[in-house]
Design a protein around this nucleic acid. Sequence first.
DNA 1: AAGGCGGGGCC
DNA 2: GGCCCAGCCTT
Length: 350
Amino acid sequence: MSDFAQHLIRWQKAHGRHNLPWQGTRDAYRIWLSEIMLQQTQVGTVIPYYLRFLERFPNLARLADAPLDEVLALWSGLGYYSRGRNLHAAARLVMERHGGAFPEYIEDIIALPGIGRSTAAAIAAFAYGAHCAILDGNVKRVLTRHFGIAGHPGAKKTETELWLLAESLLPAHQVNTYTQALMDFGATLCTRAKPRCASCPLGSSCVALATDSVARLPTSRPKKITLQKTTRMLILRHAGEILLEKRPPTGIWGGLWSLPEADMETDLAHHCRTHLGMEVATAANLPALRHSFTHFRLHIAPLLLDVTRLFPRVEQAEQLWLAPRDALSAAIPAAVRKLLQQLVALEAPG
DNA sequence: AAGGCGGGGCC
DNA sequence: GGCCCAGCCTT
């Protein structure tokens, strides 16, 4: 057995957690439930949910029998509700595929919805003592620090390396103790912030500690550069009204009424004729506007245009709307509302 | 205010 | 096969 595994197992017996509600059982259902709840959610938050859930659904068959709404009601507040849906769907699949007995083969476990490679390994190790490596956030942190592995753990290359390492470190015996050790060690000692390196039984062999890199590992995800996008927004005036266009139901501003847009390079006269059904005359450029989204910043170059001729199809098109100026109360994006307010101010006498 | 977190869905 | 998302929690 590697020194790493040996030290961890010894540490677990002395300092690990031994009284969590899902410990001391080999009931795969209870272990499965705990592993699903522990995805994305910390132990302290999970415990009351776990106990309430088990009280209502003490076994897999009772869960499979229940309506989904009741499952989700007990999940309410835990977040990531797809976990609850998948749990319920998986319970029904276990009834169908395995006659109600939670599967023992890792291939069958991982085939259930909501269970990936790491969760399947954890269930198999705790319920059946299987010789399978886990690799969750705690384990990634412990391994990257102890073995000095740089690169974002979410990146394919790093993750592949970590899986290989995790498997190579597996002890031949006491896999369940070792697996629990990795989890507890990562959660209570080798923590993300303020790890307790002074009390660490693995400190003498920790690469991060030796190179003063503990705070820099694991490598954080690369900051996404905020994309910059530019668009022209067309303010098409016609008899005191402004042309609005309904956006597609999905994506940015899905289903909202917005101003027609065009690339900066587009030939506007041609575009308006063929796409919007009107002849236009350029009136003026309006001051540029910036609008920030989560993933990018939009630079808006508004252009004021006067409609000189309107083809009849415009009034029949469902996605086009010649809106009165007071349409500002309609479902309009904030950036567009701001733009239209500027226009109103600009046109105000004086 | 930002980033972490397993797995699924989408391209 | 890479990218994004979900919802709550910690820092």
